[in-house]
Design a protein around this nucleic acid. Structure first.
Length: 216
DNA sequence: AAACGCTCCAACCGCATGTTC
DNA sequence: CGAACATGCGGTTGGAGCGTT
C-alpha cells in the first residue's frame, strides 16, 4: 500500500483475513459499533481503529449490499452525482445498501467511463488530497442535514459566504428557483450546486430528484 | 505455459470536524 | 477554553484476478 507513515508498524495492513473478519464481527455484535480505537486492544486484532471501522462499514455491516449495481442504482447514482458532485457519503445515503466507498469506486470505474465524464472538482469542494497537502489545508466542504431541517457545513462561515457571494453572479444570471437551477462546474456541461440554493438538504434532494426524473 | 497489461475494488492516507475531559 | 481523542470524508493506490499476446 502507501507509505509507512501513519499507523505504525504494529498494525497489520492489506486485505483482511476470514479470521480477522470473524473477530471484528463478533466484537461488534457484542459491544456494538463505536470506540473503534479500542477494538485492537480488546480483541487482539493487529489493525488500527480506522481500519476496523472501515472494514465494518464497507464490508461486514449486515446492511451492506454486495454484488453488481443494478440499472436503477446506476441511474440513481448518476442523477445524484449530477446534483451533488463527489459527495459520496451523501450519494450513498440515498442508495440503499451501498457504501460511499462502493459508490465512489463504481463511479470511478464504471459510470464515469460510461458517461464519458471527466473527473470534475466541485467549485467549493475544490482541492484533491495532493493539493491539500501542498497547500497545507484541506478546503473540503461538507453538507449535513440537521435534525431541525437546517443545513450545517464543515467550513468557516466566512468562506461559505464568500463562495456564495462568488457564485451569486451566476445565480443571478442563470436562475432564481429550483426550476432554473444554479449552473456551475467544468466536468459536466452544467452542474447544479444544491449548496447554493437549498434551505433543506433532504427536501432539496427529493425535489431535485423529482425534477430530474420528470425532466429526463 | 509464461509474460505482460489492464481492470476493479478493498484499503490506506491525510485532513476536518465533533466530542470528551 | 484548549488539548486529546474519536469519527467521518474524499482522494488515491496496491495488488488480485482476468484477458490477451
Amino acid at each position: 500500500m502507501k507509505g509507512a507513515a501513519g499507523n505504525g508498524a504494529e498494525h497489520r495492513r492489506g486485505l483482511w483475513t476470514v479470521e480477522e473478519d470473524r473477530i471484528l464481527t463478533d466484537h461488534v455484535k457484542v459491544h456494538g459499533k463505536g470506540k473503534w480505537n479500542r477494538i485492537p486492544k480488546l480483541t487482539g486484532l493487529k489493525r488500527c481503529g480506522k481500519s476496523c471501522r472501515l472494514r465494518w462499514m464497507n464490508y461486514l455491516s449486515p446492511g451492506v449490499k454486495r454484488g453488481v449495481f443494478s440499472e436503477e442504482e446506476d441511474d440513481l447514482i448518476i442523477r445524484l452525482h449530477k446534483l451533488l458532485g463527489n459527495r459520496w457519503s451523501l450519494i450513498a445515503g440515498r442508495v440503499p445498501g451501498r457504501t460511499d466507498n462502493q459508490v465512489k469506486n463504481h463511479w470511478n470505474t464504471h459510470l464515469s467511463k460510461k458517461l464519458g465524464v471527466k473527473q470534475r472538482k466541485c467549485k467549493i469542494n475544490a482541492s484533491s488530497s495532493k493539493s491539500s497537502k501542498e497547500s497545507g489545508a484541506n478546503s473540503r466542504t461538507e453538507l449535513k442535514s440537521n435534525d431541525d431541517g437546517s443545513i450545517s457545513c464543515r467550513k468557516d462561515e466566512a468562506e461559505i459566504h464568500n463562495a456564495m457571494e462568488d457564485s451569486s453572479e451566476k445565480v443571478r444570471e442563470t436562475s432564481t428557483s429550483l426550476q432554473d437551477p444554479v449552473l456551475i462546474g467544468d466536468g459536466y456541461d452544467n452542474f447544479w450546486d444544491p449548496y447554493l440554493c437549498a434551505p433543506n438538504l433532504m427536501e432539496f434532494l427529493d425535489q431535485s430528484l423529482d425534477l430530474f426524473w420528470d425532466g429526463m
